[in-house]
């Protein structure tokens, strides 16, 4: 349970991090809060030859409203975003989801962008980004690009981020008037990985829901406004399409049941919350 040897590079700026990434490529990993990466290193699931520590970069420690989205920089911790949102009360979905991200003691260092970069299929922040139709801002030494959440998550801890790129920020669209938002998840203990997690958005004429923890990545669906048996049928079809697997935590059948029952409850809560 000790990491393999690596060089430790303390980046003094984003440009320095990008230079190091350009030079080292997939030999290197960006280290921010380390709440997923350090565990992976300790278990030797990853063995980079260098870590580029960006956790001290002030220019990345930001969370601000820009063009109808909250833009969160790569050094902003989950706890910092949570404090900010609870003070401003501007984002019901993220506010509901953040207390479920890890634990008090990991949110203090764990970053928002780090959770997106790690792309655990059951993680709450990738799920929210997917439900909201957010974007990931990637940057390499040569260029910047914006990748929609739908195109960013490629599978279990696999993303569209290239070896010479780092996540500079992620953008969570702001809530829209007349839309309702809800989140819930089922896990063995508070803070454990979710057996299934749900983020629902109810608009005047549409329902959108993203499900985490069932497929190999968060998956979202949008329907016209449905009720009663029609909603049950849509959720049942969605539950099967996610192709969940049996594992040591739950059976695929149980997870389908969660999508039908808990998914419906979360959608109904989002409908009730419509402004």
């Amino acid at each position: 349970m000790k990491p393999a040897p690596f060089d430790y590079i303390r980046a003094g700026s984003v440009d320095e991090s990008l230079d190091a990434l350009h030079e080292l490529g997939d030999e290197a990993r960006i280290l921010a809060g380390g709440q997923s990466l350090a565990a992976m290193l300790n278990m030797r699931l990853v063995r980079p030859t260098a870590l580029i520590d960006i956790s001290g970069l002030r220019e990345l420690d930001r969370a601000e409203t820009r063009d109808d989205a909250i833009e969160v920089g790569a050094a902003c911790t989950q706890a910092a975003l949570s404090h900010r949102l609870s003070r401003e009360g501007r984002h019901p979905l993220l506010e509901a989801a953040l207390p479920h991200v890890g634990h008090y003691q990991t949110r203090s260092r764990g970053t928002v962008c780090g959770s997106i970069a790690h792309a655990d299929p059951s993680a709450e922040l990738p799920l929210c980004l997917m439900a909201l139709g957010g974007e990931v801002l990637l940057r390499s030494r040569q260029k910047r690009r914006r990748v929609p959440a739908e195109a960013f998550f490629l599978g279990v801890i696999s993303t569209a981020c290239a070896p010479d790129e780092m996540i500079e920020a992620v953008r969570f669209p702001l809530p829209k008037p007349a839309y309702g938002y809800a989140f819930d998840e089922v896990s063995r203990r508070h803070g454990d990985f979710a057996l299934a997690a749900f983020a629902a958005i109810a608009g005047p004429r549409t329902i959108r829901m993203a499900v985490g923890g069932v497929a190999d990545r968060p998956v979202s669906r949008e329907w016209p406004m449905l009720e009663g048996a029609a909603l049950d049928d849509a959720l049942n079809a969605f539950a099967w399409e996610l192709r969940g697997q049996d594992d040591q935590h739950a059976t695929a059948a149980y997870r389908r049941g969660l999508v039908r029952k808990v998914g419906r409850r979360v959608i109904e809560e989002a409908m009730r919350c419509r402004g």
Partner: peptide, 19 residues
């Protein structure tokens, strides 16, 4: 292994000494 780093409770096992 929880310790306080600059006053903040965090996991000692997910930090490297050089950090």
């Amino acid at each position: 292994c929880t310790i306080r780093l600059d006053g903040v409770a965090t996991r000692g096992c997910l930090l490297f000494a050089v950090q």
